[in-house]
Design a binder for these strands. Structure first.
Ligand SMILES: [Mn+2]
Ligand SMILES: [Mn+2]
Ligand SMILES: [Mn+2]
Ligand SMILES: [Mn+2]
Lengths: 218, 218
DNA sequence: ACATATTTTTAGATTAGTCTAAATTTTATG
DNA sequence: CATAAAATTTAGACTAATCTAAAAATATGT
């Protein structure tokens, strides 16, 4: 069975929404896909016909086993291409998303196998997100955000949750990237901001919104 | 202006037909695109509306300046990706065409610039075809096919014209690839076949169809 | 519990790319 | 040069992906 880029994008969006929100409805999926609920309903029927979704009208929908497998394959391709773009072609982490959004739909499986080899079978992409292996398995790392970690310990940045261009631009400004070492010196109750010391940078303050989106391990 | 993959495929096909046959008509383009003349007519109107084609109904069509530029950009992308697949990912030259057929439609220009850099700005693809540079310029090499070159001189294979899977399979069997050194020992008038000595291989005979499609320089 | 708000689906239309069958134009030929 | 053959275009239809507007189902709040 083969799928259009649009169908793949829907499957991926449903997977991510199920991960983040537990389950997804028509309206929230429409927002994620930048389209209208009516359009989503049409697509849900098509995806059900292709056995990627369980769907009962008005009741809800969820990925089937093969829908899940497809989602993980697309995510694998997306993250491997991002890794290639950053580590082989020298792009910055905030430049690669829209290119990977196209590259993830290149169909050849052999291409992905060889790309994985060529890159050294990486386990994490440039944003710290795990890359599913050939069987769809994900490595997980114990990590917490900067609001919940102990003060004055050396922390290593593992991933960032909000990966919007605006967020990545701000993190670049703070010299915070994946693998960066930093300490949280103190937290301010008033606005939840935090004073931090980033490796080799002067002490600064980050907002609560930033702190909540940066995940580290000790 | 942006173009669909289908539009790009048409523009590339028109370019190749104009190169090979001088000019192309609706029917021959339909064959090249594996579709029907009526479908081609519809597309010609669309491409004219996008200013990629000069088109006068019943009279013919040809690429505009920007149509030509677009064709060369797509060919550049196609051949750079083929080079990547062969020289970085280790594919054989007969495995890469259909993957490049998808990859050539990835839109980012910056991606192509960086890929070109990464590959060392190659001038020829794995089939010996020239890769247009960033400004659409092609390197050309003086080359002739094995039927027109002098006997008993060492020749270096530069390119192959027919690049069908069947042809490439046969050339692999003869251990003939781009850069291979060989000599034509004699030609047989009856069927136009040729006796050749391929570098380190025993003497064999190739058919006229093969000989006419292998291009070498002295 | 039932009226109102929210969510979801249906109905009907549009665009890109394709098809077949028929009409038209150009080219070739007796 | 008149007609037959070939090439090309038009007409009308279909599918995928989208939209708006309206209808239907579900959820919510006093
Ligand atoms: Mn995508
Ligand atoms: Mn990523
Ligand atoms: Mn293509
Ligand atoms: Mn090639």
């Amino acid at each position: 069975m083969s799928f259009t880029a649009t169908e793949e994008n829907y499957i991926k969006a449903i997977y991510h929404l199920q991960q983040r929100l537990g389950k997804a409805g028509t309206t929230v999926l429409a927002e994620a896909m930048q389209t209208r609920p009516a359009t989503v309903t049409d697509m849900l029927k098509k995806l059900e016909a292709k056995k990627l979704l369980h769907y009962r009208r008005y009741k809800g929908f969820s990925l089937t086993e093969s829908g899940n497998r497809l989602a993980l394959l697309i995510i694998r391709k997306h993250r491997l291409w991002e890794y290639f773009l950053v580590h082989k072609l020298g792009f910055n982490w905030d430049e690669v998303h829209y290119m990977a959004e196209e590259l993830e739909h290149i169909s050849s499986r052999e291409l992905i196998t060889r790309l994985d080899q060529f890159l050294g079978k990486p386990a994490f992409d440039p944003h710290g997100d795990p890359i599913p292996d050939g069987k769809g398995r994900l490595k997980t790392i114990r990590q917490m955000n900067l609001m919940t970690l102990p003060l004055k310990k050396i922390l290593v940045v593992q991933s960032v949750r909000n990966q919007s261009a605006d967020m990545l631009e701000l993190l670049n400004h703070y010299h915070i990237g994946i693998g960066t070492k930093l300490k949280v010196l103190r937290r301010f109750a008033f606005d939840g901001s935090a004073e931090i010391k980033v490796d080799k940078q002067p002490i600064t303050i980050i907002s609560n919104q930033v702190a909540q989106n940066v995940y580290c391990c000790i």
